[in-house]
């Protein structure tokens, strides 16, 4: 880097570190403003200005399909993505997406981080990078242009999904899963190319979904979507132990919990916005919820039986969640 000369002769100041982060999400995304920007500020402050993090959002230097590969190749240092964007790449992480395994964004976020700490198999899945943090979205519900109460109502509906696990669920429910990037949801809903979305209500605000949906079904809790924040491994290894400790302190489980809270908060404001926007919200009563669950339940068994490693991870995850509750 260009500016290390200035600090010569001042041992304590250490080396200046300039980190660049790229991601495919909007710069106004709640995680961007509530987690990443504060993270950059805290890094700068606690390193007395030595560590700077420049965040370049909105796919300006990367894309959802390539952010992970870009960071591994060293095209920039830090990446943030939704694992569901690249099917097949993170099979074991899908454990957190299984139906009913976690109850909320905070629970899922912390649990997934602890799973990483405890599961060598999951560590293996991310062995090419230094994972800074994991978090998950608030639980997925159905946002639609028609009333959805029972699972039968999903039959033949064109529903947007992200990631293979959600695709499996929608297929089980008899819906027609349609893959598309999140920014296209608004347009495609509005123009009837899809009839609904399976997603957490926190996205209502970011994508102005309340303007284009007429109904929301609350309480299904079908899945959560994991996201990951990661750093180039060589870059990580090049950092001093103190700097590594600082970064770890500001990310990891601490960040996971905070990010989970962002989504929890988004969940509430999302439904409030929807109500204000005239969206009819159907709260699923327990007996109806059982009908949904019984259709989705086989997915757990199918998933865990497909690979012994999956079974191990699943059992470990269940135990971690139990400890959390």
């Amino acid at each position: 880097s260009s500016s290390s000369n200035e600090n010569e002769g001042n041992e304590n100041a250490g080396e200046k570190i300039e980190l660049v982060m790229g991601h495919p999400f909007s710069g106004q995304h709640p995680i961007s403003t509530a987690i990443l920007e504060p993270f950059a500020e805290a890094l700068k402050e606690e390193s007395s200005g030595r560590i700077t993090l420049t965040i370049i959002p909105a796919a300006a230097i990367t894309s959802a399909a390539s952010v992970y590969e870009d960071v591994i190749a060293g095209s920039f240092d830090i990446g943030w993505t939704l694992q569901g964007y690249t099917a097949g790449r993170y099979p074991l992480t899908e454990v957190v997406e299984l139906p009913f395994i976690v109850n909320s964004a905070t629970e899922g976020s912390v649990a997934l981080w602890r799973l990483l700490e405890q599961s060598p198999d999951l560590q293996e899945e991310y062995s090419e990078v230094k994972v800074l943090s994991f978090w998950v979205t608030d639980p997925g519900e159905v946002m639609s242009k028609k009333l959805v109460q029972k699972p039968e109502d999903m039959s033949g509906m064109r529903v947007r999904f992200a990631g293979p696990m959600q695709e499996k669920m929608l297929t089980k429910l008899g819906a027609v899963p349609v893959g598309m990037a999140a920014p296209d949801m608004y347009d495609n809903l509005e123009r009837g190319i899809i009839d609904g979305i399976a997603i957490g209500s926190s996205t209502i605000e970011s994508y102005r979904l309340h303007e284009v949906i007429t109904h929301a079904t609350e309480g299904l809790h079908m899945f959560v979507s994991p996201q990951v924040l990661f750093l180039n491994k060589d870059k990580w290894d090049s950092l001093s132990v103190e700097d590594q400790d600082l970064i770890s302190k500001l990310s990891g489980e601490y960040m996971a919990e905070k990010a989970g809270e962002v989504y929890n908060h988004g969940l509430d404001t999302g439904f409030e916005l929807a109500l204000d926007g005239g969206v009819e919200i159907y709260e699923v009563p327990d007996d109806v919820k059982t009908q949904w669950d019984s259709i989705l339940a086989p997915i757990v068994e199918e998933w865990t039986s497909s690979n012994p490693k999956y079974k191990t991870a699943y059992d470990l995850m269940v135990q971690i969640v139990d400890d959390l509750r």
């Binding site: 590969e69 569901g84 099917a87 097949g88 695709e167 893959g179």
Partner: peptide, 19 residues
């Protein structure tokens, strides 16, 4: 090289799981 990465990373499409 990117193709090799796609293979070792087991990247597939999300609906039809085409490698």
């Amino acid at each position: 090289l990117y193709g090799i990465r796609m293979q070792s990373g087991n990247y597939v499409t999300s609906v039809l799981s085409i490698p």
